[in-house]
Simulated scan of single mutants.
Amino acid sequence: MSPYEYIKHRQILWALRHGKRLGSQFRHDADPARVERGEKLFTFDLDDNLFEPLAPEVRREFEAGDGGELEGKMNAVHSSSATAVNFFHYWRRRGLIAEAARAVRVPSTGIAGLRFEARFPIHADFFKAPNLDVVIDYVPGNVLKATAIECKFNEPFGGWGRKGLKPVYLDHKEFWTELPNLRAIAEQVSPADTRFVALDVPQLLKHTLGLMNAYGKRGFRLLYLHYDAPGPAAVRHAEEIAEFSRHMERDGVMFQSSTYQEAILSLARDRRAEHEAFVDYLAERYL
Score class of each variant (00 low, 15 high):
157 F>W: 02
273 A>C: 07
3 P>R: 07
125 D>T: 15
27 R>K: 15
281 Y>T: 14
124 A>Q: 10
49 N>W: 00
60 R>G: 14
231 G>L: 13
79 S>V: 08
164 G>I: 12
199 L>T: 03
252 G>D: 05
286 Y>A: 11
178 E>W: 02
281 Y>L: 10
14 W>T: 00
64 A>S: 09
73 K>R: 10
166 K>I: 06
197 V>W: 12
213 N>I: 02
228 D>V: 15
41 L>I: 06
245 S>D: 03
253 V>L: 06
182 L>T: 07
35 V>P: 08
172 H>S: 01
236 R>H: 04
109 T>Y: 07
175 F>A: 02
75 N>T: 13
89 H>N: 03
267 L>F: 08
241 I>G: 01
184 A>Q: 09
126 F>K: 09
265 L>M: 09
141 G>K: 02
62 F>D: 10
67 G>C: 12
124 A>T: 14
240 E>D: 08
212 M>E: 04
95 G>R: 14
19 G>L: 09
286 Y>H: 10
236 R>Y: 00
187 E>L: 08
130 P>Q: 00
190 S>I: 07
160 W>M: 15
217 K>E: 08
266 S>R: 15
10 R>A: 01
92 R>D: 09
152 K>P: 06
241 I>Q: 13
267 L>G: 01
109 T>E: 14
229 A>P: 07
218 R>T: 09
26 F>V: 04
125 D>Q: 08
84 A>W: 01
220 F>C: 13
179 L>F: 10
284 E>P: 12
69 E>D: 09
11 Q>C: 06
237 H>V: 11
89 H>A: 12
274 E>F: 10
245 S>K: 05
122 I>G: 09
181 N>F: 10
63 E>C: 01
180 P>R: 05
61 E>P: 07
18 H>I: 03
131 N>W: 00
41 L>G: 03
196 F>C: 15
134 V>Q: 01
256 Q>N: 10
10 R>I: 00
130 P>A: 00
76 A>E: 07
90 Y>F: 11
223 L>I: 05
70 L>E: 02
172 H>W: 00
57 E>D: 14
250 R>E: 11
244 F>D: 01
68 G>K: 05
272 R>L: 06
245 S>M: 03
12 I>F: 00
30 A>R: 09
75 N>F: 02
47 D>W: 03
6 Y>F: 10
235 V>N: 04
239 E>N: 05
77 V>P: 09
251 D>V: 05
13 L>S: 01
76 A>L: 01
259 T>V: 02
107 P>L: 03
271 R>M: 09
77 V>Q: 05
248 M>Y: 11
267 L>T: 00
191 P>N: 11
64 A>F: 02
140 P>H: 05
111 I>M: 13
217 K>L: 06
132 L>I: 13
230 P>L: 08
59 R>P: 02
159 G>E: 01
126 F>W: 08
85 V>P: 03
282 L>K: 04
40 K>L: 08
1 M>W: 04
275 H>T: 12
53 P>G: 07
133 D>G: 08
251 D>F: 05
252 G>F: 06
82 A>N: 05
125 D>M: 04
203 Q>P: 05
14 W>Q: 00
182 L>N: 13
112 A>W: 07
120 F>M: 06
97 I>H: 15
50 L>M: 03
252 G>N: 03
258 S>Q: 03
269 R>N: 10
166 K>R: 13
29 D>H: 04
201 V>W: 14
66 D>Q: 09
2 S>C: 05
114 L>D: 04
46 L>Q: 08
277 A>T: 15
